[in-house]
Write a protein that binds this DNA or RNA. Structure first.
Lengths: 248, 248
DNA sequence: CGTTCGCTTGAGAACTCTCAATAGGGGTGG
DNA sequence: CCACCCCTATTGAGAGTTCTCAAGCGAACG
C-alpha cells in the first residue's frame, strides 16, 4: 500500500501526476511551496471508506491516483452514487466541517490532503486556488446535470451505454488516444456500483450488459475487460448525438 | 411587464431585493458602484424562453424576481429539468460563451444582467464576487446531487412528496415562516413541468398528487393552491428524515 | 359559445424490480 | 493439488410500477 505513496516524491509537486489538473493547477512556484508545507499523503485500499457522511472533515484534498465513489444512502438502504472521483478531483468542501456524502475507494487510492483550516486560510490569500476550484466545481455541476438527464429520462439500456461511453471517453483521454473508432478499457466498477450510479438494480445492469454484448455494441473478455468496436454506435445506443455527446 | 422593472430603482443596488443573496452579496459599496455601471435589467414573460441551449451567451446575470427552469432535451424530445432558478440564482457561466441548457421563464421574471466580458474582467479583480460565486456553485452542486438521489432511487410518490417539500420549504424561508407544522403555498409549476423535474410523465404526477390528497398528506384548492397540514408527515412520505431533510 | 389548455382518470402494455437458482473465479486450507 | 467457500455475476419467472394511449372535465379566452 505504502508503495503507491512512494511512487512520487512526497514533498515535490513538480513530478506530481495531477499537477496540471488539480486544484493547484494554476499555482505559481512560490504558491506551490506554501502548499507543500501543509500537504500530506494518505493511502486507501480498494473497498476502504475514506469518509462517512456526517463525519467531521478536518481535511480536504485531491485524488492523486485511483478511483473512489461519492454516494448518498437513504434510511432504508437505497443508495445512489452522486459522483465518481478520478485523479485530480477534489474531495471536501471549504467552509463545511461535516461530510455530506460517503466517500469509498473502489481501487487502491492515494490522496494529497490539506488540513482544512490552513487550506481555507490559504485560499483566501491565493486567488489562483479559488479560481481553479470554481472552474472545477462548475465542471462538476455540469456533469451532475448531465447525469440528471441519464437518471431521469433514459432507459436501462441507454443508461448502461451512457456509463460505458463516459468511462471509455475518460480512459481514452487519459491514454491520449482518439475517442473515435475502437476503444478498449477495464471497467473500474462492479455491477452493483454501476447499478448505484445508474439508479438500477444489479440484475438489470447485468441483463443490459449481456444484451449490448449480444447485439455487438460491446465485446467482453471476462467480466471487466471491455472493447467498444464502434464508439459512434455506442453513443447512438446512449441516446446521445453520435457527433458530440456529453457537453455542447 | 415593464412595471416589474420599475418596482425597484434600476440604478441603485441598495434597495435590491436580492442584494444580500446574489453573486454580489459580498461586494463593498465601491465594488457595487462598478457593478452598477455595467448592469442592466431584462424582463421576461411567463412562458418566454430566456436562452436556448447552444446559443451564444453574451451576458450572465441574476434572477431578481420570478422563477425559471433549466432544462436539457434529447433529440427525440424527452426533456429533463436540471435546475429551478429562483430569485438570487445566477444564470450563465463565466468563461463559457454558449449556453448549455434551455432557460425558460415559468412566471414573469426580471433579471439583473452583466455583459459577460466586463463581468469576467471584474471577477478577476474582485475576489468578493468569485468567492460568492464559488459558494453558490457549491450549493447548486449539492442540490443537484440531492436531486440525483430523488431521480435515481425514489418512487413516484416519494418524488412528488420531495418536490412539494422543497417548494414548501423554500416558500416558508422566503416568508420567514416556520418550516414545521402547517404550510400553505402556490405551486409555481404545471404538472408537466413537475414531470420534467421528476423524471415522470404528467399522468403519473397527476395520479400521485391525487393519491397524496386522498391520503390527507396534502390539501388542494384548485390545481395550484396547496396546504401541507403536517410537514413532518410530508417528509416521511418523501423518504427523508423527518427531522433534518435535504442537507445534513 | 366554441376552442384551447391544463388536468384527471381509466385500461392495458411495457419496463424494471424482486426473489431465486446457478455459474465462474480467486483465495484458503486441508 | 484439489476441495471448498465466498464473492461477483448471470439468468429466469413472476410481480409491481410506471408509461402509453385515450377519453373526459373545467376554467379561461377569444
Amino acid at each position: 500500500m505504502l508503495n503507491d505513496t512512494l511512487k512520487f516524491d512526497a514533498h515535490n509537486c513538480d513530478g506530481c501526476p495531477i499537477r496540471h489538473r488539480a486544484v493547484c493547477a494554476r499555482c505559481e512556484t512560490d504558491e506551490l511551496e506554501v502548499l507543500e508545507q501543509i500537504k500530506y499523503y494518505r493511502s486507501y485500499e480498494a473497498g476502504q471508506t475514506v469518509i462517512w457522511s456526517g463525519d467531521q472533515m478536518d481535511f480536504v484534498g485531491s485524488v492523486v491516483s485511483g478511483i473512489s465513489t461519492l454516494t448518498q444512502t437513504m434510511e432504508d438502504g437505497r443508495t445512489q452514487m452522486v459522483g465518481l472521483l478520478l485523479p485530480s478531483d477534489f474531495v471536501g468542501r471549504p467552509g463545511r466541517d461535516r461530510a455530506a456524502y460517503d466517500v469509498v475507494a473502489v481501487t487502491d487510492m492515494v490522496m494529497c490532503c490539506f488540513r482544512r483550516k490552513p487550506f481555507e486560510a490559504m485560499m483566501a490569500k491565493t486567488p489562483h486556488i479559488a479560481e481553479r476550484l470554481l472552474e472545477m466545481t462548475l465542471d462538476e455541476l455540469d456533469a451532475a446535470r448531465e447525469w440528471m438527464l441519464v437518471l431521469g429520462r433514459k432507459t436501462a439500456r441507454e443508461k448502461i451505454a451512457s456509463l460505458l461511453a463516459i468511462i471509455a471517453r475518460r480512459d481514452a483521454t487519459l491514454k491520449m488516444a482518439s475517442i473515435q473508432g475502437r476503444l478498449v478499457f477495464d471497467l473500474p466498477l462492479t455491477r452493483e456500483a454501476m447499478a448505484d450510479y445508474l439508479g438500477l438494480t444489479l440484475e438489470t445492469v447485468s441483463r443490459q450488459i449481456s444484451a449490448l454484448k449480444r447485439d455487438g455494441v460491446i465485446e467482453l473478455e471476462g467480466k471487466r475487460h471491455v472493447t467498444i468496436p464502434d464508439m459512434g454506435r455506442l453513443l447512438e445506443e446512449a441516446g446521445d448525438d453520435s457527433d458530440g455527446g456529453m457537453l455542447a
